[in-house]
Design a protein around this nucleic acid. Structure first.
Lengths: 184, 184
DNA sequence: TTAAAACATGTAATTAATTACATGTATAAA
DNA sequence: TTTATACATGTAATTAATTACATGTTTTAA
C-alpha cells in the first residue's frame, strides 16, 4: 500500500459536519483544511463512490433550477464508527513536509553565493503575504480567541499562522546572517 | 504531469557535492535532507539511470573486497547546468504540508471532547523528543553557529529545529486552552 | 441581454511514491 | 566462527495525486 488512504477519513470527517456535495468538499480543501491537506475534485468524486460502496456514505439527489442534478452525501452510522475509529488511532509523526525551496538553499553551501539573497527575499515576500492573510483570517473568524464549539478550526488556523510566522522568522534570521557587502 | 520531478534535481545536487552511490544517496535522505524531502532507494536507483540517459550523470564501477560491485555516479557539465538552472528558478509556495494529526484535531470540533487531551499530550511527547534530537544535532554540527562553508546545511537544520519548536509551542498553547476539570 | 463566474460532476492519462519482492557481499562484534 | 548489521542494487505491484480532458447549468453583474 502506498499510503493508508487518509483522504477517505478526511472526506468522512467533512461530511460528518453536515451532508455535502462533491463540490462542497472541493471548496473545503481550498479553505482552512487546505493548509494541511489538499485534494482535487478528480480525487474526491471517485472517493465518494467508493465510500458509498463501503456503506460509509449515502447520497440523495437534489434538483436545483430546471435540471441541474446534484448529489448530496450524508454519513451513515457505520461511517461514523469508521471516522471515530480513525480519530482515536495513534497518529505517526508527519513524514511529508516536502519543501522545494529549502532543498535549493541546502545546495547553495556557500554563504557568499550571490543567488542566496534574492532567493531569500523573494520567499520572504511570499511567506509574509501568506502570514498576513492567515492572521487576518484568524482575526476575522475568531475575534475573541478560541471558540469552544469550533475549537478544531481555531487550532488549525492558529497553527497555520504560527507556521508561517516561524517561516518568516527563519528567513529573516538567514538574511541577517548574510555578509553585509556585495555578494561577490 | 503529476509533478515536475523535483527528485532528479535533489539527486543532482547531492551528487554535485561529491560523487556518490545510490546507497549514499539513500542515506542522505535519512539525514538533514530528510526533514524536508524523502525518497526510498526504489525511487533513487531508477532515477540515477534516467539521469545518466539524459547525460546529466555518469558512473564508474568500483570493486570493494572480492566482488562487490558498486556504481559511483558523478555529475557532468550538462548536469551542473541543469542543477544551476533549477536553483535559480523561482520556487512556488509549498503546496504539500500534509499533516494527518492536524486534520484529526480539526474534526474534534468541541473543546470538551474527551479525546482531545490524550491526543495532544501524545503528540507533544513525540514532537518534544524530535525537537530535542534536532537541537542536539544542530549543537553538534554547528557548535559556533553558522558555518560560512556549509551554510545551507545550517539553514536546513535551523529551520527543522524552529519548525519543531513551533509545533511544540502550538500543542502547549492548545493544551492550556483545554478546560481544567475532567473532560465530560 | 450577454458574458463571466460560480456551480456541478465526472473520466483518462500520467507521474510520484510507497511497499513488497528479490538477492547478494563485506565487516565488525560476540 | 557465526551471526548480526551495514553495505549494495535492483524490479514489481500498488496506491496516491496531479493535470488534462470533457460537459453542462445557474447565477450574478456589467
Amino acid at each position: 500500500m502506498a499510503q493508508r488512504n487518509i483522504l477517505q477519513f478526511i472526506i468522512l470527517g467533512l461530511i460528518n459536519e453536515r451532508p455535502k456535495t462533491g463540490y462542497d468538499l472541493t471548496k473545503d480543501f481550498d479553505y482552512a483544511i487546505g493548509e494541511f491537506w489538499t485534494a482535487q475534485h478528480s480525487q474526491i468524486y471517485p472517493q465518494l463512490k467508493s465510500l458509498e460502496t463501503k456503506g460509509w456514505l449515502s447520497h440523495t439527489e437534489e434538483i436545483s433550477g430546471e435540471k441541474l442534478n446534484r448529489k448530496r452525501y450524508a454519513i451513515t452510522t457505520t461511517g461514523q464508527a469508521a471516522l471515530s475509529h480513525w480519530l482515536s488511532t495513534a497518529t505517526a509523526h508527519p513524514t511529508n513536509g516536502k519543501d522545494e525551496f529549502v532543498l535549493k538553499l541546502y545546495f547553495l553551501h556557500d554563504q557568499n553565493d550571490a543567488r542566496l539573497r534574492p532567493m531569500l527575499t523573494a520567499q520572504q515576500a511570499d511567506h509574509e503575504q501568506r502570514r498576513d492573510h492567515l492572521r487576518r483570517q484568524l482575526a476575522t473568524k475568531f475575534p475573541n480567541g478560541s471558540d469552544p464549539h469550533d475549537f478544531g478550526h481555531f487550532l488549525i488556523l492558529d497553527h497555520a499562522v504560527r507556521r508561517e510566522e516561524e517561516y518568516c522568522q527563519w528567513l529573516q534570521a538567514a538574511l541577517e546572517q548574510l555578509p553585509k557587502g556585495a555578494s561577490k
